[in-house]
Measured scan of single mutants.
Amino acid sequence: RELRDAFREFDTNGDGRISVGELRAALKALLGERLSQREVDEILQDVDLNGDGLVDFEEFVRMMS
């Protein structure tokens, strides 16, 4: 339940997936600093298991585990 709530916080447009822009904004909020595009792309590449360029809830749960 906590992970579902956190996912909703990251998924600002409510489409059920976290985009690169949403991921960048969430990481900035969490870390208090802006990451480079390359750093965000590397994180997305590690987390995006199905290669669609987005983070779905299952991928998010794995990222947070």
Rank of each mutant, 00 (worst) to 15 (best):
R1T: 11
R1C: 05
R1V: 09
E2S: 03
E2F: 02
L3V: 07
L3Y: 07
L3A: 04
L3T: 04
R4L: 02
R4D: 10
R4P: 00
R4H: 09
D5S: 03
D5C: 06
D5Y: 02
D5L: 04
A6I: 08
F7R: 00
R8P: 01
E9D: 12
E9T: 13
E9Q: 10
E9P: 02
D11Q: 03
D11S: 01
D11V: 00
D11C: 02
T12D: 03
T12E: 09
T12N: 12
T12H: 13
N13L: 00
N13G: 01
N13P: 00
N13H: 01
N13F: 00
G14P: 01
G14S: 06
G14D: 06
D15G: 08
D15Y: 10
G16L: 01
R17I: 07
R17D: 03
R17F: 11
R17W: 07
I18V: 10
I18H: 00
I18S: 01
S19Y: 00
S19K: 02
S19H: 02
S19M: 04
V20D: 13
G21S: 10
G21C: 05
E22C: 02
L23C: 07
L23M: 12
A25R: 13
A25H: 11
A26H: 05
A26C: 15
A26P: 05
L27K: 11
L27G: 15
L27Y: 07
L27I: 14
L27F: 14
K28S: 11
K28Y: 05
K28M: 10
K28C: 11
A29G: 07
A29W: 10
A29L: 10
L30A: 05
L30H: 11
G32Q: 03
G32D: 04
E33H: 06
R34D: 15
R34S: 11
R34T: 12
L35R: 14
L35E: 08
L35Y: 12
L35W: 13
L35F: 05
L35D: 14
S36A: 13
S36M: 09
S36K: 13
R38A: 12
R38K: 01
D41M: 04
D41N: 02
I43T: 14
I43R: 13
I43E: 13
I43W: 07
I43M: 11
L44P: 04
Q45N: 03
Q45F: 04
Q45T: 12
Q45W: 08
Q45C: 05
D46M: 03
V47N: 05
V47S: 08
V47T: 10
D48I: 14
D48V: 14
D48K: 15
D48P: 05
D48S: 15
L49M: 05
N50S: 09
N50A: 10
G51P: 15
G51N: 14
G51I: 07
G51S: 15
D52F: 03
D52R: 07
D52Q: 08
D52V: 07
D52G: 09
G53M: 07
G53K: 08
G53C: 08
L54R: 04
L54E: 09
V55A: 06
D56V: 13
D56F: 00
D56K: 08
E58C: 01
E58M: 06
E59H: 06
E59V: 14
F60I: 15
F60M: 08
F60L: 05
F60S: 04
V61E: 12
R62M: 07
R62K: 10
M63V: 13
M63P: 01
M63W: 11
M63T: 14
M63I: 12
M64T: 12
M64I: 11
S65Y: 11
